[in-house]
């Protein structure tokens, strides 16, 4: 039984992202004309408006840009204290996520190297894998 998590924002382009995530593949759209990576998924490139794109595999490496710790519970699925972290990916985009339960806000520092891992997850769209980041090598 996968862990139930707050529902995903779903549209045709987000769906493609999550289809890769179901296979534990962390990919973002890369513009077919100007190569800009975009996140979240969208219909067109915000730089050149091209609708051509491919799903670029990412390294799963990044570093801490900022983080917070919720001391108030907003979701029953995420009891406080609950950290959230903004990770600047090696490829450029910024990815906002939580961490596996064993990591705390106090484990983080500016520019700390982070690496991708996956959590089990389920919502009304079905079971999936949730990409998150944790301190590299920990």
């Amino acid at each position: 039984m996968a862990t139930t998590r707050p529902v995903r924002v779903m549209d045709p382009f987000a769906r493609e992202f999550w289809e890769y995530a179901e296979k534990k593949e962390f990919r973002m759209q890369k513009c077919g004309e100007c190569n800009k990576l975009r996140w979240p998924a969208a219909a067109v490139c915000d730089k050149c408006l091209s609708a051509e794109y491919s799903w670029e595999p990412l390294s799963g490496k990044g570093q801490v840009l900022s983080w917070i710790v919720f001391h108030r519970q907003y979701f029953p699925e995420y009891p406080a204290p609950h950290p959230a972290v903004a990770v600047e990916l090696a490829e450029g985009p910024i990815f906002v996520c939580c961490m596996p339960d064993e990591f705390q806000g106090s484990d983080l520092s500016d520019a700390l190297p982070m690496e991708l891992t996956w959590l089990d997850a389920e919502d009304r769209f079905g079971e999936y894998h949730l990409p998150v980041f944790k301190p590299a090598g920990k």
């Binding site: 995420y78 906002v96 996520c97």
Partner: peptide
């Protein structure tokens, strides 16, 4: 979108 996009990760506030 940033207000709700990160709901699966518990971040909408």
């Amino acid at each position: 979108l940033s207000y709700v996009y990160y709901a699966p990760w518990g971040m909408t506030s």
